[in-house]
Design a protein around this nucleic acid. Sequence first.
DNA 1: GGCCATGATTTGAT
DNA 2: ATCAAATCATGGCC
Length: 468
Amino acid sequence: MEDQSRMIQSLSGVSLTGHSVQGAVGLPLPHIHDCTDGDGRNQDIGSILHQIMTITDQSLDEAQAKKHGLNCHRMKPALFSVLCEIKEKTGLSIRGAQEIESPDAQLMRLDNMLLAEGVAGPEKGGGAAVAAATAAAAGGVTDNSIEHSDYRTKLTQIRQIYHTELEKYEQACNEFTTHVMNLLREQSRTRPISPKEIERMVNIIHSKFSSIQMQLKQSTCEAVMILRSRFLDARRKRRNFSKQATEILNEYFYSHLSNPYPSEEAKEELAKKCSINVSQGVGSTITVSQVSNWFGNKRIRYKKNIGKFQEEANLYAAKTAVTASQAVAAVHNSQDDSPTTPNSGFQMKDEDFQLDAADSKNSLLTSMFSGSPGSFNLPNSGDMFKSMQSVNGASYLGAQVGANVQSQGDSTHHVISQTGFSDGPRHPLYSSHGLNVNGSWQDASRPPSVTSPNEGPASAHSNTDTSN
DNA sequence: GGCCATGATTTGAT
DNA sequence: ATCAAATCATGGCC
């Protein structure tokens, strides 16, 4: 009631002097009583206000009739404008304190995340972004992008749903806004609604819808998170390496038995080699850290039970020696333009195999002269020797590999001299290498960070860049 | 289902 | 950061 009286006061007094009323008041007012001064006007307005104030006390029919009368009243526009102004002022003072427009940090975070996840933003490149993000989230496993079709498919699905829903929300928002605006415009004929108020209402609608959008974004993020965690779980699930990959890794391991610590470059090389068949649909990619894992496991398991790995060691030593002999022979036959690299499939690996051959010969020679590859002064070396002799292909090994070794004698030196590999911590050919009494690898007091000490500069890892 | 092989992870040392 | 060692967890064979 107090408000009403204040309103009346302001209407009859202050506001009428305001600019908003001026235009209306400035119009000719034929209905006004004879007295043309302000007093008469005040009386007129006062009576209108009285009608307005009492309209609620009357019956519906009466009220309707009076309303119609008021609507047609020539003072209506002026009054309406004043009421709008008052409403605007009071409304702003009430709401102004509440509506602290904070730049929505959370929404921005969500947007950024969706962008990073590849859900929002451009279609292509999303996969890479996801891969990077996922790799980073995997806790340091950053060496490989996630190549997983399932993951991508699911992500695309999420992306589609997200965009569809977003579009729906936007459409609904626009429709609703239009609807409300129309309603308000309609109502503005009968009650004081200023354009500002409409604008504010629109903002409210938008903010409501944006909160819905935020929910959508949030749940999309959650979906991506779940997908990612599932995928990472799947990654944790062990999948055996392909036979070729294991062979490649074993070849390297046994041919570098004296120091099975591949350098970073070597690991990369091995990872590349092991993944080479993926393009043909064989196996799966192997990352550098997987190579590291493999070597870590291999070293520890080999060391724990050398006897068990003896057969394998002999096998690979023989294999590498044969490969090497072929490679060396090829090099011998045609120094520079070697036509093929038999048995390797990796053309640029000639030098690699040469040195590997040298190394594997070390293993074989060691085994021949002192018991077995990597007898390493370990207590069970005798057993190893026996196992070495009991290997099925022992005679084969003895004959063929021995022949290879002999035939390669000079070529090895050739390679060694070529690569400048002549002296080092141990004799290049006949040293017994591998594990020492402590059970640690002889040459591995601190594994080299770049290349193994028993590898020449022309080893597997120095030739990768130049050959491309 | 048990068992072994094996890739991955964790922990602690350097 | 990288390693050894221990451990976990799964794949695959029987």
